[in-house]
């Protein structure tokens, strides 16, 4: 069971209080009607689904009800960071590759 740091409550909380909401940073196209069917499908359905570093959206459902982002390793389940909406991840697959960490 995961132990997740809520960036709004400022402390680690049990997974039972949260709900995962899929890949983070999937922005709705600003002009949907200008999108091709392929672009719309990409937005709706197609996901990175990496084996490794994954940026994902969670909501602190029974706590502060805020959505936030988690950078998590999908094999070790280690959480490398959590960050608020509107912020960018500090840890990415690329930054780890550069930093030599895995």
């Amino acid at each position: 069971m995961l132990h997740i740091f809520c960036p709004y409550c400022g402390e680690h909380r049990e997974e039972a209080e949260f709900r995962p909401k899929g890949q983070a940073h999937i922005a709705r196209p600003l002009s949907p009607e200008q999108c091709s069917d392929e672009e719309w499908a990409e937005y709706l359905f197609f996901r990175d689904n990496p084996r490794g570093i994954h940026h994902e959206l969670w909501v602190h459902a029974t706590g502060c009800r805020k959505f936030f982002n988690v950078t998590r390793h999908t094999v070790s389940y280690e959480i490398l960071e959590t960050y608020k909406m509107g912020e960018k991840p500090k840890v990415t697959a690329e930054s780890l590759a550069k930093g030599g960490r895995s």
């Binding site: 899929g22 359905f45 996901r47 689904n49 990496p50 084996r51």
Partner: peptide, 18 residues
């Protein structure tokens, strides 16, 4: 359990979540 990873090797994205 590994489809997206293989797809990525071929430059393809799939509508999958594992």
């Amino acid at each position: 359990g590994n489809s997206s990873v293989l797809a990525k090797m071929a430059g393809i994205k799939l509508p999958l979540e594992s």
